[in-house]
Nucleic acid binder design. Sequence first.
DNA 1: CTCCTGTTTAGACAGACCTCGAATCAGTGC
DNA 2: GCACTGATTCGAGGTCTGTCTAAACAGGAG
Lengths: 125, 125
Amino acid sequence: MSKQELPVVDVSEAACCAPLACEPLNAAEADELAPLFKAIGDPVRLRLLSLIACHEGGEACVCDLTGAFALTAPTISHHLKVLKQAGLIDSERRGTWVYYWINPAVLERLSAILGPRQAAGLVPA
Amino acid sequence: MSKQELPVVDVSEAACCAPLACEPLNAAEADELAPLFKAIGDPVRLRLLSLIACHEGGEACVCDLTGAFALTAPTISHHLKVLKQAGLIDSERRGTWVYYWINPAVLERLSAILGPRQAAGLVPA
DNA sequence: CTCCTGTTTAGACAGACCTCGAATCAGTGC
DNA sequence: GCACTGATTCGAGGTCTGTCTAAACAGGAG
């Protein structure tokens, strides 16, 4: 279950330097990127992502996450699945518990796409 | 260029340096940010945003946008409304046509939140 | 004034989404 | 083997969303 083919796109593609305002996205690119933003377009999932990213060791057990929400375990599990299918996180079972960690490359890609003109110059004041 | 009363959150707030992986988002922050990502979580809206951002002069007429999609004018208008209500774009009517332009500050904020830790680049005060 | 073009609003409908309870799967320990 | 805990899957509800057609609104031209 850990090495199934992800629906994720190739990060090394042209995407790294096309900040949305550089040249218009074509339909294919938009169809590919929009689901990623959609995945984090939910308060619960956005917070889950943050909780996982901030957790010590860079990974968090599901049991660490459920407590932060007034939601049932199946609902949390559902949201984690959405994030995973989007390629934003990955998981592994270790004994009784399942651990999740984020995929930094995907987040960086999204950040770069929204960013003004990264790479060019990060301009310190 | 003249009106400043955006429904958008204050960019100079703590947001500029909290890249999602720094410390966990609380529920209030997530409720505020998620709708922005949700707005760009649709292929049509993501492409609209890109088309507007890339258009010469930094602004685009609705008539320039509708041609890029196999959708009716009301549908495009609906998506533009969603983007505008999220604070990602703004618009103004000039004679017969209505022009849209993006709000770079909001995009930068979203980029910074997803970004790895570039943080210090933007420097408040 | 009247017509025409560009844009938005209103209403409707199929499909997707969030959440839950109940059931099931996966490991650990008695 | 059996019971227990952690996590996921399944099916169902109510709500939200994307798209359309039809109609209304805003300006410019004749």
